[in-house]
Simulated assay, not measured.
Amino acid sequence: MSNTIEMFGITIHKFSMSESIDVLQEWLQFGDNSCKYVVTPNVDHIVQLEKNPAFKQAYANAALTVADGKPVVLASKLLGKPLPETVPGSDLVPNIFTRFQQSNLPLRVYLLGAMPGVGEIAAANIKAQWPVVEVVGILSPDFGFEKDSAYCDRICQAIADANADLLIIGLGAPKQEIWVNKYASRLPVKVALCVGATIDFLAGNKPRAPMWMRKFGLEWMHRMCSEPKRLVKRYMVDAVIYPKLFIREWLKK
């Protein structure tokens, strides 16, 4: 039986959170430094993938794709190819750390993204909660850095010099996915996770939605209310386009 489904023009792995952690732990313990990168599609990703070829190519080259948003999981069930559950990047990272802490295995991590100073707070929180996890590098790149190839070369070299196992990329979509796809061959890490605001969450810089909101798929509402200027327009557009994309998938079925 295949462990993937095809939906919205992308391949998604039918893994639960626990199964995803199993795969990532194996790669991190026994894999080579070939930069297997992970993407986590939500509604906004699905909408952006329609109009951004570079984003879609980054998805095509990802080693692991697990559904972030509950609407994506719901769509899979309605289309008769159910995904087991959501695997949000913001939960995936602390779950990996917990698995390595429970196994008493060392893990070297590089934090790329978030605003200046946030990575340092996140690193201190990581050290306090998961002592086996060592943050070996922190970088908050300048705005628009992805357009400067020389700057990107220096970032790749800094990550290489840090000898990290795991690269956590918190640059926002689609920038983080497009960037890691472009530079993966220059990044000698075992795994890279494209996980948006996760560094901010680890730092406590942005509050996570209450557990009941996450359980009912309402984390988007909490985030929208927390950052209305940035997110209201995005979510309004997504709310119009995503149902149309679902109907298209339904008609294909």
Rank of each mutant, 00 (worst) to 15 (best):
P188G: 02
T4S: 14
A192P: 00
L92C: 00
S140A: 14
I21P: 12
K215F: 15
D32Q: 05
T198F: 02
V73A: 02
A164M: 01
N3R: 12
I168R: 08
I155A: 07
S103T: 02
K77W: 14
D142F: 15
E177P: 05
K77H: 13
E177M: 07
A209S: 12
N95R: 10
K127F: 04
I241F: 12
A184D: 04
V180H: 05
Q29S: 04
Q25M: 14
I159V: 13
W212T: 01
L64I: 09
V39Y: 10
R208N: 06
P53Y: 04
P106V: 03
N3C: 13
L83C: 06
G31V: 13
A173R: 06
N33R: 11
K206E: 10
A192E: 08
P94H: 10
N125A: 11
V73C: 04
R154W: 15
H45Y: 12
C156Q: 02
N33P: 06
Q157H: 11
G117V: 03
R186F: 15
P106M: 10
M115V: 08
E227W: 04
W212Y: 14
A62L: 02
K36T: 13
A62R: 09
P174Q: 04
F201L: 12
P141F: 03
F15E: 10
I159E: 09
L107D: 13
V132M: 01
N104A: 15
I126Q: 02
V118R: 00
A67P: 01
L112P: 09
K253G: 10
P131L: 05
K252N: 03
L231T: 02
K81C: 12
S2N: 15
L166I: 02
C194T: 00
E85P: 11
A173E: 05
V39C: 11
A203D: 08
A60M: 13
F143D: 03
V39L: 01
D165I: 06
G172L: 00
K190H: 00
V66Q: 01
C156A: 08
D22C: 15
P94L: 15
Y183C: 03
P210L: 06
G204R: 08
L79Y: 08
R214K: 14
F55H: 01
R214L: 11
F216N: 13
A123L: 10
A192N: 10
C152S: 14
S185K: 08
P141S: 05
E85H: 00
F246Q: 03
